[in-house]
Structures are given as structure tokens and as C-alpha cells.
Design a protein around this nucleic acid. Structure first.
Lengths: 206, 206, 206, 206
DNA sequence: CATGAATGAGTCTTCATTCAT
DNA sequence: AATGAATGAAGACTCATTCAT
């Protein structure tokens, strides 16, 4: 074996599919049951892959978890594409908030996938893995920051952190209290905030 | 074994101490290493209690976790006492925010103890246990809500949820990005917000 | 759990017995089948201990192996006692050689237990463990060295190394060729050599 | 698959090369890491042969190990050629001893390749394989025996066994104690012994 | 009440070997 | 002949829980 097929070429179509299936199954299972509660056996079965075969694609469980994080990372490409449809940065921010709303049921049921992944991975030893999730969350901040900067915000980073923190907090509460409405209300509030941003006097960071 | 000594009388002082030591050790260990990473053996050792003896005080690991949650619940009594020192509800809210700041190092290192406990317990099977943590978080909302109500807020619950969510989100980001400053900044922002509340026109929920 | 019972006190007689049984079973199994071929399950069964219980006494397989090495180390106390029965160092050396002869059948069948353990452990990663066996072999050299020194040898260490090497080599050949006679012949040769030592002119190292 | 190409003809030059590469890689890996620690995947990668392809050349791992033993066996042809350069059998024996000295660093690091292979293979089930290594060691004895016979020794076989055992023992000790000097000293001692052989009175075998 | 010891199901991981193409 | 992929049987190790004393 030369190397684990981290980036499968079109040559091994079927292999790439299986790998993708494993990552998808892991992503779903980990979101629903948590990192420690998701055994490789369970993930393998969900992906319809024999347990022993998992190790052909991922050397360790941490390796698979890293692939899951990378998979979330890949979501940002799609997110940017969605945001790109809007000219106005304010609209882009509102579109970002809207994406959270779309997943409100799953979030209320299982929490924010990235937020809880960060939480759980940070409690694991392997450093590389636990850092990865934080980086992904950092990218979310960056995406928001770009919009705030385009809006001419005085403190784009601060605004972005505020926005993401508000979302993560709402997701956590919504999950803890089993109340999707919290997410809805928060999304509305954040949308209103974004709408008010052209008036610097109303910036809550002001 | 007749019954678990949930409320130890003065008769078994030593027993109560042991129980308290176990809960304290579990609280600390679980915060630092996570629920699944904290074995009963580890907790027992940290509490200096023989492993076999743990089961006299707690029938199962879930039982111990529930006691930890109750222990956090007990913190509210102390919190109310602290807040009670101030007449002005606005000062009380600011005192609440200040308590978060005091723990900023541990929070940046291990996350909000209650928030991450909620997250982790929700992924466990046993329903009773997983609910418990959410209730504690709900109480934090209630404490804040009381102050907002005293302030004459139009939507005290909404304000309270906003406040707690902002804190939990900031804690999560601060933890994920290893940056205590995020908590500091957020505390300042929230304090400013509370200060602005006497003018209903500035309520961001307005 | 405070600590693995590395040195069981008389208090836990039964536990100490079990531990000893495990070490004895491991010693036998490892000698006969080799380190890698001896699974903990096999050893546990040979010791009549449930597999899961093994880990109460030894945290890892390496830990158990280390105990086996220490067990061989303990043999030297008995060996010294045996040698102590003789006044003349020459007689002691001959007694040492005689002990090898007594085990000739097992040696021809499975090799020298210490020699092959050294060989096998050196191929394992964990340093502490692989060093241990070498130390035991070193002690055998030391025991011999003391006798050569008492004999007034010019190079007691060199003589001791020669003696032990001759034994280990004979054991290896005897094992590889399935011929206990090699050990017998070598023992005779070494005995003759020891007998000739009073005459320095005949020292082959001379 | 028709038959394993045990003796590859010029027709499949490339195949023969691959096979040779596999044996060489296995020989090196097995010497350094041991039989059980050397996985086929590791050997295949060291030989730059795809794992799946190994089984075209060797039906099983034991098969490959047998080829490694045969490869050591082939070394004797070269050894005889080297010894053949000397007329005097005494010189030949000294040349044999010199070959051991040349490898002293690797021997001190990993043990005698043949000796440890014998040790390890004898612990494996498959009889055919475990015998093979012993045979190779036996050939070494034979080579030495021929020289002793040519010298007119009274007990050429005994002398040969003594010589090889001395070497194997020295290799084992040198390896166990991480001391190449042991090999150097022993080589010197054995050389002196060989030099003294014309005088039967000095034969330590008496 | 206390506790050293036991238990057994479950988890990750490795690897020789086989198979489909 | 060649090879990427598959497979399944172990093996080491963990841990909540129970038991005997």
C-alpha cells in the first residue's frame, strides 16, 4: 500500500464513492449521537461498508473524524456560492442567517453540528484533530467578517464574532431546551440587526 | 443496601463528605475531560474514594452525572445571593456578566461547564439525565429574565435568552479558538447593552 | 483504583496468588510460543483467569512481560543460594553450568528462555520492556563474573561473557538443530575449561 | 494462477527482479523488526511492489519467509568463494570469523540475522518453515567443520559447533547489551584459538 | 458500610489473505 | 500478470457494573 487515498482520483470511482459514503455516514452519526457514542462499527454499517474495510480508507478513527471536519470545511465553498448570488453584503449576511434557519429542526434536535463537534473534539487527546474543528468555525467567522468589511463596518471581526457567537449560543439553547423557536427568534433579531447596520448609531458594539 | 443517601443527615457526616467529594471531583473532571472521557475510576481516584465505594453513593454513572447537574443547580442559590447585593436590576445583570468574566481562563480552556455538559448529556441515551442539564441552563435564563422583568423590559424572556445565548456562544468560540479575549469583548458589549436598556428605543429587540 | 498491585502485600493473599499464576502462565507460554504468539487470552486461560481480569493486575501486555522478566530476575536469588552451597568458586561455576544441563530438554525444545526473550523483546517498540531482558542477561554475566574474580582471574568480566555466550550459543544451536546433546557436550567442555582455570597458562583468553 | 515462479527463467526478467526485491526487503525488514512485526504490507512497500502483487510470487507469508531463508542459504556460495581464496584451513576459519566482525554494527543493533530468524521461526506453527532456518545454521556448522577436518582436528564437528555457538552467543550478548565490543573481543579470542589449533595440547576441548 | 477484586460486553485496530477486474 | 479493494478473524485494551467479604 503506497498511501491512503486521501484524494481519490477519477480512476477509482467506486472507491471514492465508498469513502464519501463513509464520511457522510460519520458526519450524520456523529452529529446525532456524538463523537464518542459513534462507534466505527455503527458508522460502517450506516455506510454499508464492512468494518474491516473502513481502515483501508481511514487509518484511524481520528482520521475519519478529520475527514468529517474537512467535509464541513467543504461546505463553505457551497456557502460562498450561495452568498455570491447577492450583490449587497447586507443581503449576504441575511442569506447566511437564513441558512441556519433552514436547518433549525436538526439543530434543535442535535445542536449545531460544527459547534458540538468543536466541543467534543476538544476533549479528545490528538491535537491535530481537535484543532481542525476550531479552524472550521474560524472560517465561518471569516466569511461573515468579509461581509461586514464590505459594509464598511468599523470592527468587522468583532461583528463577525458577535454574529457567529449569537448563532452558536442560540443553537445551544435551542438544543438544550428543545425549542426551535429560539433559533427562529434569534434569526429574526440578527436579521434586524444587520438591517440596522447602515446606521452606525445603532451598532450595538458602538 | 437500603437506599441511596440522596440527602445525608448529620448522622452520616463522613458519608456526606465522601459524596460531596465525588460530586466535586466529577464536576471538575467532566468539565476538563468531558463526560465520556471521564471514567468512574478516574473520578473516584480524584475524589480519593475507592472505586467500589462509588456505587454506594451513586447507583450508576448517570446517577453521578445527575448529581453533578444538581450541583450546578445549587450554584444558583449562591448566584442569587451575589445578585441580591445590588438594588438595581441593571447592576444585577452586570454582576451576572461579571461572574462569567471571572472564569474566563477555564472557559477558554474547557468551554462553559454547563453548556458543554448540556451538549454532551444530550448525546447520551438515558433521558432523565440528558434533560437535567437543559433545566439548569433554563434556570440561568430565568435568573436573567427576572432582572429584565424588573427593568420593565417588553420581552424579558427574549432578552434573557439573548443574553445567555450570547454568553454561551462567546464561550464556545472562545474555547474553539483558544481566545479568552473573545469573552472579555463580549462581556463588555453585553454590559454596554444592559446599560442602554433604560432607553427602550435602543432595545435591539425593539 | 489507587495503583496496580505491583507488590501485593500479605493482605490480599488470593490476589497475589492470581498475579503469580498469571506471571507463571505468561512465562511458560512466552517461552514455548514466543512473545508475539502468546495472546493475553491464551495466557489468561492458561492461568485460569478471565481475560478482563488480567488488566486488573497488569495495565498492558508489556506490563505483564516486564513482570515475567522480573520473575526471571528473581531466579537469581535462588541461583545464588544454590551456588552458595559451594565454597570453591570453581565448584560454583560448575554448579551454574549444571543448572543449564538440568533444563536441557526444554532448552532444546524452546531455546534459552532468557536469550530468546531478549531477542524477541528487542524487536518490540517499548524501550523500557526491551531493556529489561538485557539487564537480566547482564546479571547472569555478573554472577559468573563474581566467581571468576574469586578465582583470581585476570579478566573476570571477559571470562564471564565467554561463559554465558558459550551457553547461549549452545542453547540456540541445540534448539535450532533439535539436539539436546549439543548442550550436554558444551556443558562438559565448559566444565573442563573451568577445571583448567587454576593453571593460568591454560586460560584460553591468555 | 498456474504456478509460483520459484525459478524464474530469463523470459520473465522483470518478474524475477520483483521477486528478488521482495526477498531482499523481507530479509532486511525481518532482521530489523522481527518476523511477527514485519507485515506483508510493510515489506511490499519497502520492495516497491503493490501488496496484491506479492501473492503472485509467494502464496503465503510463510512462503516468503522460506524464500528469505533460502536467500541466506545462498550466501554460503559466496562464503565458500571467499574462503576459497585461502589455502590454509586455519586462514579460512579466520576469514570466516572476520566476516562476522564486518557486520558487527548491525549484529549489535539487531542480532545475528540467522540466529534470530531461527529463534523466531521456531515459534511459528508451520513446520516446514521453522525447520528451514535450522538447516541454514547447520550449513554454517558444516562449512566450519570442513575446515576443522582439513586441519586434522580430532572432533571437527564438535569444534565447528563450538565455533558457531561462540559466535551466536556473542552476537546475542552483544545485541542484548548493546555492545559491539563483545563481538570484537570474541572474534579475537576465537582467532587466537584457531591459531593455537596446531598444538593439540591447547585444544580447549582437551 | 467499605472495598478489593471480578466480569464481560464493547471498541479500536491490525493483518494475512482473497477477489474482481 | 497486476492491482486496488475487500474481508473477517483475531488481538489489545477499557470500563461500567457487580460481588464477596
Amino acid at each position: 500500500m503506497t498511501e491512503s487515498p486521501s484524494s481519490p482520483t477519477p480512476a477509482n470511482r467506486k472507491g471514492a464513492q465508498k469513502r464519501a459514503r463513509l464520511v457522510a455516514a460519520a458526519r450524520r452519526t456523529v452529529h446525532e449521537h456524538g463523537v464518542e457514542q459513534s462507534s466505527l462499527a455503527e458508522i460502517a454499517e450506516a455506510a454499508d461498508v464492512p468494518l474491516g474495510n473502513v481502515y483501508y480508507y481511514f487509518k484511524t478513527k481520528d482520521d475519519l473524524l478529520r475527514a468529517v471536519v474537512e467535509n464541513y470545511d467543504g461546505d463553505y465553498d457551497r456557502l460562498r456560492a450561495v452568498l455570491g448570488r447577492h450583490e449587497d453584503p447586507r443581503e449576504r449576511l441575511k442569506a447566511l442567517i437564513a441558512t441556519w434557519l433552514m436547518a433549525k429542526e436538526r439543530i434543535a434536535m442535535y445542536g449545531c453540528p460544527i459547534g458540538s463537534l468543536c466541543s467534543e473534539l476538544s476533549k479528545r487527546d490528538r491535537d491535530a484533530t481537535s484543532e481542525a474543528a476550531g479552524i472550521v468555525l474560524g472560517k465561518l467567522v471569516t466569511v461573515a467578517e468579509e461581509q461586514f468589511a464590505a459594509l464598511g463596518s468599523v470592527d468587522p471581526h468583532g461583528n463577525a464574532v458577535t454574529l457567529v457567537a449569537a448563532y452558536e449560543g442560540a443553537a445551544l439553547l435551542s438544543h438544550a431546551l428543545h425549542d426551535p423557536q429560539i433559533l427562529v427568534d434569534h434569526a429574526a433579531r440578527l436579521t434586524r440587526w444587520v438591517d440596522s447596520l447602515d446606521d452606525p448609531a445603532l451598532d450595538p458594539r458602538g
